[in-house]
Amino acid sequence: MSLRLPDLQPELRVMPMPADVNSNGDVFGGWVMAMVDIAGAMPAVRRSRGRVATVAVNSFVFKQPIAVGDVVSFYARLVKVGNTSVTVDVEVYAERHPENPVVVKVTEARLTYVALDANGQKRPIPPE
């Protein structure tokens, strides 16, 4: 069943290349995790108004494999803002088969980032 992409601006959109696959021909899970971390950090940086570091991968579910040539879109949204940390949900969709387009949800994750000062120490997140 083909889905539709969310009616939002993705934080990241990328097409994996042959160097990104494992011996089975699927994109490495580690590549997907790195892209999710980048996409999730973007709203965390905006909300905290500065540097952040990933402190937890609260959940990470691979739903379907990603193939070379898929256009992969990463959508991230804030779900919690604490005193020094921000939690972000990331949903990942693949657009495949351009001759007969289909959209599938391939991954979903929740990550927590901590705001850091210039010395790498935790700092408070400013009010909105």
Rank of each mutant, 00 (worst) to 15 (best):
R4Y: 09
R4A: 15
L5W: 08
P6T: 10
D7A: 15
D7S: 15
L8P: 07
Q9H: 08
E11I: 03
L12K: 03
V14T: 12
M15S: 14
M15I: 14
M15G: 02
P16C: 12
P16N: 08
P18D: 07
A19G: 09
A19Q: 14
D20F: 03
D20K: 06
D20P: 07
N22C: 00
N22A: 00
S23R: 11
G25R: 01
G25Y: 02
G25I: 03
D26I: 06
D26G: 02
V27M: 02
F28P: 05
F28V: 08
G29Y: 04
G29D: 06
G30K: 05
G30M: 03
W31L: 05
V32M: 15
A34V: 10
A34K: 15
M35G: 06
M35R: 15
V36A: 08
V36F: 03
D37N: 04
I38R: 12
A39E: 01
G40P: 00
M42A: 11
P43L: 00
P43I: 01
P43E: 01
P43W: 00
A44P: 08
R47A: 10
S48E: 11
R49D: 06
G50C: 05
R51I: 11
R51S: 08
R51H: 12
R51C: 08
T54V: 04
V55D: 04
A56C: 14
A56T: 13
V57P: 00
V57D: 00
N58M: 07
F60N: 11
F62T: 07
F62K: 02
F62M: 15
Q64I: 00
I66K: 05
V68P: 05
V68R: 04
G69K: 01
D70F: 06
V71F: 10
V72W: 03
V72H: 04
V72L: 05
F74C: 08
Y75N: 10
R77N: 09
R77Q: 09
V81L: 06
T84K: 13
T84S: 14
S85Y: 02
S85T: 09
S85R: 02
S85W: 03
S85F: 03
V86D: 02
T87M: 03
D89F: 05
D89M: 04
V90T: 14
E91D: 15
E91A: 14
V92P: 02
Y93Q: 09
Y93C: 04
A94F: 03
A94H: 03
A94Y: 04
E95T: 12
E95Q: 14
E95R: 15
E95S: 13
R96H: 12
R96Q: 13
H97R: 14
H97M: 14
P98G: 11
P98I: 11
P98E: 08
P98H: 11
E99A: 14
E99L: 14
E99V: 11
N100S: 13
V103P: 01
V104S: 15
K105T: 04
E108M: 09
E108L: 07
E108F: 04
A109V: 06
A109K: 07
R110V: 14
R110F: 04
R110S: 15
L111P: 04
V114G: 10
V114C: 09
A115L: 00
A115W: 00
D117H: 07
D117N: 13
N119S: 12
G120A: 01
G120P: 00
Q121G: 04
Q121H: 13
P124S: 10
I125M: 01
P126M: 01
P126L: 01
P127V: 11
P127N: 11
